[in-house]
Design a protein around this nucleic acid. Structure first.
Lengths: 230, 230
DNA sequence: CGGACGCTACGGCCGCACCCGTAGCATGGG
DNA sequence: CCCATGCTACGGGTGCGGCCGTAGCGTCCG
């Protein structure tokens, strides 16, 4: 049975709160030990070990030994996409917002700017997408997006052209709906390239969590380059 | 808590075999009654009713009353995308195929040609994508795809141009990895338009399941138009 | 209007699997 | 060489949730 049981199998894997917390902790792309993940999930290390064995067996998580430590990370960016896709469906995205939209007071930093495995999300990610869209550098619709000729020039000036390859054909950028802003931001090759460049310029800096902080240089650079002021 | 519990909540919803079977039965886009879905899942009607209440509450399923019947269908095409996305991850797509790749002997018709909510999948869907790609009518990469100028002309001749709108800008087609063929096929606006046109021409016909049968006219048309012989 | 049908609401049963004890194995450092 | 560390392997306890009884309400036909 390929499809029906597969759905249930993967769903049950994601469905357990402990495993869900671990996967969420891994969403920034880092590699963590079983002990660290156990703390994230709020369970004992041996419990976490069992969960990790299941996740590895299903191909969602990859483990690599390094000395006497064993680091666990998501198996691929595709897994991160899947998890973000699932997280979008919290309580009927389209229809009636049943309970009043609960804005988590705790994670303001996460809502402001965070990494989504390999690109930016939150107000930072949405802001960049909006800026590129408003200036006619990209075009988006429900299925995907492309970089315009003017956008190619802009990206070249921003210093990400090399990272995107020199192929003359159009570049694709995958829109990725944001769970906090409920609006699309840029993933795919373009999203990766922009995020890498921002780290390179030290406009943003990683924290201990998925949230990223915007440096003073970043405030200035984002305003001058994209017209964003956070 | 927006993300972590959301992951677990939706995951647990998909994770139950009963609910997974119901969702799978709804993947072709039809609306079914609670009784029919109960039979699909192999549970009693009142059990199915409880499951459906949960799915509706979470916004995955929509219910509409019609006389004394209550029809249930997926809330949106986006839900169908999610379920297909989840189903792709059966047993580590990328790495080692743990058990020998079990080809379901039962569902040969499904592997050959089926609907994926609003577009074609299986060998039919992959074959169409391959044909368009080989003839230079579309371009694909990991993040998305576009229709070329030659492709625009071809689609116009095939009779789907009107359905896609007359806007001069490029059309986007979302690649959708197939769980049986493990290769991309066409979803999005383009995939929908092609599928609709094939039904219109009576090249394919719906069956009682998600599988579709290819008519004699379809065999001929697919061969002449796309060079596909199934 | 009476009967049949379709569905939902409540209660108890039961089983799965999550969870954490302790024990045992591999790796690295002193 | 011995000890410390990190992890996995088994065992039993427990709680959540699926499953199906019966009961009750609304909707359509004769």
């Amino acid at each position: 049975m390929p499809s029906p049981n597969a759905l249930a199998e993967i769903g049950a894997l994601i469905g357990d709160p402990g495993r869900a917390n671990m996967l969420d902790a891994l969403l920034d792309g880092r590699a963590l030990t079983a002990r660290e993940l156990a703390e994230c999930a709020g369970v004992a290390p041996q419990t976490a070990s069992g969960h990790l064995a299941q996740l590895i067996d299903a191909g969602l998580v990859r483990m690599e030994r390094q000395g006497r430590h064993r680091y666990h990370r998501l198996a691929s960016a595709e897994v991160a996409r899947l998890l973000e896709h699932v997280a979008q469906f919290v309580a009927g995205a389209g229809s009636t917002p049943r309970h009043s939209v609960r804005t988590g007071p705790r994670d303001l930093a996460l809502r402001m700017a965070r990494t989504c495995y390999d690109h930016f999300a939150g107000r930072l990610g949405v802001g960049i997408a909006d800026a590129l869209l408003a200036r006619g550098y990209i075009e988006l619709d429900a299925d995907g997006g492309t970089v315009t000729d003017a956008g190619q020039d802009f990206l070249h000036g921003f210093g990400v052209a090399a990272r995107l390859g020199k192929r003359p054909r159009r570049l694709f950028c995958r829109p990725c709906l944001d769970w906090s802003e409920r609006r699309p931001h840029l993933a795919g090759a373009l999203g990766i390239a922009i995020a890498c460049r921002c780290f390179e310029l030290e406009w943003v800096r990683r924290t201990s969590t998925r949230a990223v902080t915007i440096t003073a240089a970043g405030q200035r650079g984002l305003r001058e380059t994209f017209g964003i002021s956070l």
